[in-house]
Amino acid sequence: MNQWASLGEWLAMGGYAAYVWPSIGLAIGTLVVNMMMARRRHAAALQRALRRLAIDGYGEA
């Protein structure tokens, strides 16, 4: 921790802020987008399956 004098210095990344932060941001963004897409796909598939179940009826199984 001792290497960063202040938050501003940390954000400046020794002058490489313009390269470091977009990289980190892109990676985190891709992680988040992948996560959301996976969750949304699962949720949508589950919704469809539930709707089918509601139409086909509960009685038959």
């Binding site: 390269y19 470091v20 990289s23």
Partner: peptide, 13 residues
């Protein structure tokens, strides 16, 4: 210097 920190996302990707 600090530019090497990109490795923490580059290499795992």
């Amino acid at each position: 210097k600090d530019a090497f920190r990109i490795i923490y996302v580059h290499a795992p990707a």
